[in-house]
């Protein structure tokens, strides 16, 4: 005879299994979020980082971008297509300007995934120490990605202008 407690336990187990399956089942969303986690990891820098490690991390970060990739900065009305090498050089330049920096992505929303392309938006946060005072910057980003050779790459990145001077 099945009693009430058994039913409650079965419902809880089913719920936990469903949540675990949703979170850990391999799929496009999981792969995309994995690439975003790499952005956080490779973009961040601690004070003890050696220059060669910095170059390797910049190369790994640049490898997440399609070649070329469309970059747009709404606040400066700047838009252009940049090669992976140009992006890597820019990453090296920006990371060098920090003694330490933490890159984090928040509130990531995947707007659509279909036919090997995806669109998402979120909040990019940089916090760290420059040459003098602490540096903190927050930007809203819109990103387009495509699955190229089995890997999700950034094909377009836009820094959204939230505050317009």
């Amino acid at each position: 005879m099945v009693n009430g407690r058994t039913i409650v336990v079965a419902v809880v187990v089913a719920f936990v299994a469903a949540v675990a399956a949703y979170r850990f089942w391999p799929g496009d969303e999981r792969a995309i979020r994995g690439q975003l986690a790499l952005v956080e990891e490779m973009g961040s820098k601690d004070e003890a980082e050696q220059p060669m490690d910095g170059l390797v991390r910049a190369a790994q970060l640049a490898a997440l971008f399609d070649d070329p990739c469309q970059l747009t900065v709404e606040s400066t009305r700047h838009a252009g297509s940049f090669s992976r090498k140009q992006i890597q050089d820019r990453i090296v330049l920006v990371r060098t300007s920090f003694a330490r920096v933490r890159v984090s992505l928040h509130d990531i929303v995947i707007d659509r995934i279909d036919n090997g392309t995806a669109a998402l938006h979120g909040t990019l946060r940089l916090s760290g120490q420059g040459t003098g005072d602490p540096v903190a910057d927050v930007q809203e980003v819109r990103v387009e990605m495509a699955r190229i050779d089995g890997q999700w790459l950034f094909t377009a990145v836009t820094l959204v202008e939230v505050l317009e001077r």
């Binding site: 928040h106 509130d107 979120g122 909040t123 930007q139 809203e140």
Partner: peptide, 11 residues
Amino acid sequence: AIRFAGQRVML
């Protein structure tokens, strides 16, 4: 409080 893409980070 000014929100960006969500409410985890605000100005």
